[in-house]
Design a protein around this nucleic acid. Structure first.
Lengths: 237, 237
DNA sequence: CGTGAAGTTGATGCTTCTCAAGCGAAGTGG
DNA sequence: CCACTTCGCTTGAGAAGCATCAACTTCACG
């Protein structure tokens, strides 16, 4: 566990926080008094699989990977999260967390105990409704992912991952940096392949003028072509 | 659309219905008056991808596959559903359905218009809470699936699918029939492989004395060994 | 500099998909 | 009642895709 550095919710600069967005001032105060903010260093683990569910986590700043451990300890990255996102909602109604979460860069994370969180939920119907909508959206995303992992080729999955990384971290779509520096292994864990394959396909994309590589940084030069490469089935809805 | 044959919710034999379970008698009456029950023949499609979201569907009787269309029209089966299960909840908060659903056998399905459903939700906090818990569970299942599709071998995925089919349709786990007759192609669409691979691995399992085949029927003879074959990572939580 | 970790690249072999041929059961029409 | 077609299943051979392994390079950092 990292260093604690509380901040008052009423003065929180983060207007899009999943927790605060649907709360009135009474509950803002409640949360402010009951939460605990913690700082995590890059690489530090925030949630461990099989850890007892103690509460909900909200990212105040920084970027986080959410992943599941599989065969031979191989990781499958499920989601990339950023400021304002909720972490640990997968622990809802469970004894232990089914996922792990680790900081991709230095992070500040707010924590609310599960009992307090449920109290907030039950007193704010609008929030319960919104949380339900959030879960529904996560389910949608997860099912698209499941299909893509099952059906796409490695080249397509790598292309798809680059687009998804950019969408996770950059507000504007289009060309430009993908917003975070991941290792080849991490991109592989996201795409469902190996670090060597990622290396090769990134080299291909570079040769084809679709992306630009500078160290760990990746710039998209032709997002449209990348999407075509990914065999994009436009998802409606 | 199939034949309409309404039934009164108050007299509905299905005590586990996702819709009725958390309703008091007032709302039971409301639902009874607002719903529409429809019969679907085996093979008939109940929900189409990109169909406008009109409401929620609940299975009164019969078995259903929920799937997503992918590359080259290849289907990825996401879920097998049975009596009492909700269908179309993936359309929540969307314009069009992101999934398709088709009857695996003759089915009766109850339908509630989306406006009525939202009214029920907003008037029954307990139900909203339960629906949220349901989404959370679906998300958990989907993420386990995503990891398995990405990391398991074909042999493991076929074994895993057999166990999952049985769990979807038979209350008691253990040895015995898997509860539904699917084509090889459908098993492949579930496992994320091809019908030929399914055929081969089923033959292997039979030779190894793990399963029994009679036509399309599949009996598990040694579920434990099947689970070991599937490389089961026990899922905690 | 020197060391170790991460990334690249090529060779190799295994897994899986694809294609094609053959089989059998179920249904159709003469 | 029996050819005839059709459809799904099985099985094998060949090809393609992918993971693994190993050698080498690059980069960060003491």
């Amino acid at each position: 566990m990292g260093k604690r550095t509380n901040i008052e919710c009423e003065k929180c600069p983060n207007k899009d926080c999943s927790l605060l967005r649907y709360c009135n001032s009474t509950w803002l105060k409640f949360i402010s008094e009951h939460k605990a903010c913690t700082t995590y260093k890059k690489g530090q683990q925030i949630i461990y699989e099989r850890m007892l569910v103690d509460g909900m986590y909200f990212i105040l700043s920084g970027k986080v990977k959410v992943y599941k451990t599989g065969i031979n300890g191989k990781q499958q990255i499920l989601r990339l999260s950023k400021t304002g996102d909720i972490l640990g909602h997968r622990g809802f109604n469970r004894k232990v967390f089914p996922i792990s979460a680790a900081a991709l860069e230095d992070c500040k994370v707010c924590f609310i105990e599960i009992d307090d969180f449920e109290q907030i939920l039950k007193s704010n119907p609008e929030m319960a409704y919104q949380l339900m909508a959030f879960y529904a959206e996560e389910l949608f995303i997860s099912e698209v992912r499941a299909r893509n992992l099952a059906q796409l080729t490695v080249r397509e999955k790598v292309a798809d991952s680059l687009v998804k990384i950019r969408e996770s971290f950059e507000v504007n779509t289009g060309n430009g940096p993908i917003g975070v520096e991941l290792s080849r292994q991490e991109i592989a864990d996201l795409a469902g392949t190996t670090k060597e394959q990622v290396s090769k396909h990134l080299a291909d994309f570079k040769d084809e003028g679709i992306i630009e590589l500078n160290g760990r940084g990746i710039n998209l030069l032709d997002e449209e072509r990348l999407k075509t490469t990914a065999g994009f089935l436009p998802e409606f809805g």
